[in-house]
Design a protein around this nucleic acid. Structure first.
Length: 374
DNA sequence: ATGTCC
């Protein structure tokens, strides 16, 4: 297959510092056979082999390792039927526990969402590790009242943002692929490509059902009802017309700009941004930043934060919100200074003409994990 | 990121 000269672009202002290793990973991926375009978004940072905060468009072949293990990972936003003044973060924090297997009817939830059971039911409704979370939020400020209202949102209502993925399911799918092909791609007209895509699409649907189940558990825990406002996936590979070519659009920590409004969260202890994509997707592979982006490696964050903060200090944020994270290492790894500033990342997207800010959302209570590791 | 290491 002919490989046209690949196009590499990084959408980041000089103030959004990007690690050299991330650029090297982006360029390496851009040289893969069939690759047309590699785009780094302002939250670009090094990943395991492939960079995170990036989108890739290829022709005739696609690369499962670029999507990574957490196939279907994404963000779901719910509007709760509780007014902000009814928030009881301290009380909620003492009793919320979403770590164990969900005790509800997993088969019914999956059937309801058209997802076939596959042996990973015990993980359905669990947040997982790393940067995953479920967070109750309040509206901080509305910048685009028309879009905000069109989404049915109200300023005094609490919101729930869920960031999670396909847990062990996506991991198993990637591992099966890598065992045979390593970082090699799959020709689009092959049986193996069809088989991978079928599993991939299933994991994407499963991850969405997982976020819905997590939201349900959280709402039950705080005695609230809610309505899903949006749910978007930022780890996937999908067919897409791009700049006049039929492409495979890989997103690795990249939110879609072709599926309506998205939430771009900051670190746990920062604002999240509800944004409306603008423009036609050209030049940025129909993709946006998916978060603040890691600034320090996990091990470096553990070292630096251990010297500066006690775990107790990190469970309270500058927004006076509370973080439930009883895994001390994870608390350090996920501390706000370990991430880039979200206002700069979103500012870069605004200046590049990719989004309009609809509203900023402030944390009230963040759930990470109740499993104790000290 | 990961039923995360037997």
């Amino acid at each position: 297959m002919n490989s046209p000269t690949p196009h590499v672009r990084v959408i980041a202002s000089p103030q959004s510092w990007v690690e050299g290793e991330a650029i090297r990973q982006l360029e390496a991926a851009s040289r893969l056979p069939g690759m047309r375009s590699a785009v780094g978004l302002p939250d670009l940072h090094p990943g395991k082999g492939a960079p995170v905060g990036a989108a890739f468009a290829s022709e005739g072949i696609f690369y499962p390792f670029l999507v990574g293990n957490d196939i279907g990972c994404g963000m779901g936003l719910w509007e709760l039927d509780l007014p902000a003044r009814k928030a009881k973060p301290e009380r909620w924090a003492t009793k919320l526990d979403l770590d164990g297997p969900w005790e509800g009817n997993t088969d019914a939830v999956l059937a309801d969402m058209g997802v076939k059971p596959c042996g990973f039911e015990a993980a359905l409704g669990t947040v997982g590790g790393g940067n995953h979370f479920a967070e109750v939020q309040r509206v901080d400020a509305v910048h685009d009242a028309q879009t905000f209202t069109a989404l049915g949102l109200e300023t005094d209502r609490l919101l729930l943002l869920v960031h999670s993925g396909s847990r062990g399911l996506g991991e198993a799918i990637l591992r099966a692929h890598v065992d045979r092909h390593g970082t090699g791609g799959l020709a689009e007209d092959s049986d193996e490509a069809r088989r991978y895509l079928e599993r991939h699409d299933h994991a994407v649907a499963w991850a969405r059902a997982n976020r819905a189940t997590i939201a349900g558990r959280m709402m039950q825990g705080i005695a609230a009802g809610g309505r899903r406002v949006l749910d978007v996936c930022h780890n996937s590979v999908t067919p897409k017309e791009y700049e006049g070519h039929t492409c495979w659009l890989h997103r690795k920590g990249a939110a879609p700009s072709d599926q309506g409004p998205v939430v771009i969260p900051g670190s746990r202890g920062a604002l999240s941004y509800l944004v409306l994509p603008v423009g036609d997707g050209t030049g940025h592979a129909h993709s946006l930043a998916h978060g603040a982006g890691r600034k320090w490696t996990r091990s470096s964050a553990r070292e630096r934060m251990r010297e500066r903060f006690t775990p107790d200090a990190l469970t309270r944020t500058s927004f006076k919100s509370h973080v439930i994270c009883e895994d001390r290492d994870l608390l350090f790894e996920e501390a706000p200074p370990a991430y880039k500033a979200i206002d700069r990342v979103v500012g870069d997207l605004v200046e590049a003409g990719l989004v309009r800010v609809v509203a900023t959302l402030a944390p009230v209570l963040t759930y990470k994990t109740r499993s104790r590791r000290e």
